[in-house]
Design a protein around this nucleic acid. Structure first.
Lengths: 331, 331
DNA sequence: TTGAAAGCGCTACCAC
DNA sequence: GTGGTAGCGCTTTCAA
């Protein structure tokens, strides 16, 4: 006897095998109480035999919803985005929504890709400067912005940048540092812009900080940054800072004696490099975005709630690289 | 005049506005050369005016394909999975396929979630021991296994484990280490089992290694592992190894003098902790899985190719933690 | 409790 | 070139 092909069975085949109508199969599969136990079992048996899994396509089309939402991010490099996405996925799963991901980095058609994605989901979370504002506002599905400058009428979740950056600079001032360098590009990511703003604000009455613009935000960017002894180097993120650390070591500069260095994100590596940094609630960022998006998706379109804004707190994590601490060294 | 609602327009509305049939709209939207330039522009104008984006649902249903595939993984903790997924997404985007993600960790209904996911995609990549083999084989879509023990008839991509683990142990033997401990749980992940097997093989004629089973694979697991000076501690991954490093420092044990420690994955942190480890081609793993899956999806179902197996090479990265090196210290 | 049938939005085939 | 229309697989009235 020939092997039964396990290609996708449809509701019609199940109905035929079970000797019922497709309506009954539909009901039985979704545990409607409009079918008798006996019928339900007949249908289930048929479904199992045919390896029937209802097509989401048919279902979604009929229901008018995808039961899925998407998240757009620049890249997945470094643990930051991964953690955010994980928090997002977990929250989305909580209300029965699948998650589609889209990385825009290294894609020349980011906008088209986002539009295409928008057609597959009930809502979209957009991280950072992945696409222009016009795209955001012209999408036909609800959007939540994450780590991005607010757009009128759109919900936005961010992590505190400027405030904690000021705190960081004040801590460095407390160590006696007076000359500051900021490494990163404020024009590329809103998060970085916020950190840079905070640094400048904190130094508004002191010597203004240097800005070293980097090409990217990775180790290499930090390694390429010019080093000047006696400065406090505030980096846009941990990877750059770690690159600076590497370059300093190569150049024979001691940290923090000759050079103070700080990062942002509190990567695992920061702990082992003794890097002073700032911790962000990454999963919480993702989870919040997912929850808000779900609210938008399910809300009454006639009476939409006012746009929400939230800035989640971040926390300074002091380690060795920012200066000598009197009694103990933190880890 | 009331604001035009920007809710999803359908092909019918565009057709009406443009004064053509839906068939023509369909053609015009997909740049078919069966429409005149003039008509095309009329349709485009109407579409723009209505903010029309073709529904993927309708399209997919009609075309009989989702143009999407899924990847299932246990968790997104640590850069490992993130990198794999990024490689996967990039490759999938290359042939016009969207990516759905599913994290099974912390989900009690992993199997149901995978089946549901299978109904939304043209194919599925399954990483590690996320669901039982029976689920894999009973899915109605093509599957590629990633970092998982092969299942008959299913494509599998893995990274070399046992071979490089042997090499690692031989390196440690070269340093004079004779007593080994392996930290991790070989029964939880096939990758870990492979590494453990390699360690045992390399020591088949020497004193057999201890096995310290951990609960998870994170820093805490490593910190909790009992420490015995004079042993070479081969850890299942970098996070555990870093935990061991932390615990050793706390216990006043010097690495590598009192204790040799090695990890696996070559996280960024490993570099800064001076941890000897093994590097995996993570993106390449993901990209390979995506490519193979695409081949399965598009192949002639009547004449399926034989199941493919591939083991990608991994590379020993020697740093300080495994023992004293004569001239220079590697970074 | 079950069945028949009308969509959901789109593609593709067949006429014109 | 363009239009009409039959599905694609499912949910959901409306009847029976």
């Amino acid at each position: 006897m020939a092997m039964k092909a396990l290609s996708k069975a449809t509701i019609y085949q199940v109905a035929q095998l079970a000797g019922v109508s497709i309506a009954t199969v539909s009901r039985a599969m979704r545990d409607s109480d409009l079918v008798t136990q006996q019928t339900r079992e007949r249908v289930w048996a048929a479904a199992r035999q045919l390896r029937f899994t209802p097509s989401r396509l048919g279902r979604s089309l009929a229901e008018g919803r995808h039961a899925a939402n998407g998240i757009v991010f620049p890249d997945l490099v470094g643990p930051y985005y991964a953690e955010v996405i994980l928090g997002y996925e977990a929250a989305a799963a909580g209300f029965g929504s699948s998650v589609l991901i889209l990385a825009t980095s290294g894609r020349d058609d980011a906008e088209a890709a986002v539009r295409e994605l928008a057609g597959r989901v009930d809502g979209l979370t957009v991280m950072g400067q992945t696409v222009p504002d016009e795209v955001i506002t012209s999408l036909a599905v609800p959007v939540v912005l994450l780590a991005r400058d607010p757009v009128p009428g759109v919900d936005t979740v961010r992590a505190r940048n400027a405030g904690t950056a000021k705190q960081l600079v004040e801590h460095l001032l407390g160590h006696g540092h007076r000359r500051f360098t900021f490494v990163g590009d404020p024009d590329v990511a809103p998060d970085v812009r916020g950190r840079w703003d905070g640094v400048r604000q904190a130094l508004s009455k002191a010597e203004p900080p240097h800005l070293v613009r980097t090409q990217g935000f990775d180790l290499e960017a930090g390694e390429r940054a010019p080093l000047q002894p006696g400065r406090a180097v505030v980096c846009a993120n941990d990877e750059i800072a770690l690159g600076v650390l590497l370059a300093a070591e190569k150049a024979g500069l001691r940290v923090p004696e000759d050079l103070a260095v700080t990062g942002w994100d509190d990567l695992l590596a920061a702990r082992f490099a003794g890097l002073t940094t700032v911790r962000q609630p990454m999963r919480e960022l993702g989870a919040t975005a997912a929850r808000w998006l779900n609210r938008r998706i399910t809300e009454d379109t006639e009476h939409p709630a006012a746009p929400r804004r939230r800035v989640l707190p971040t926390r300074l994590v002091v380690r060795r690289s920012c200066g000598i601490h009197s009694p103990e060294v933190h880890r």
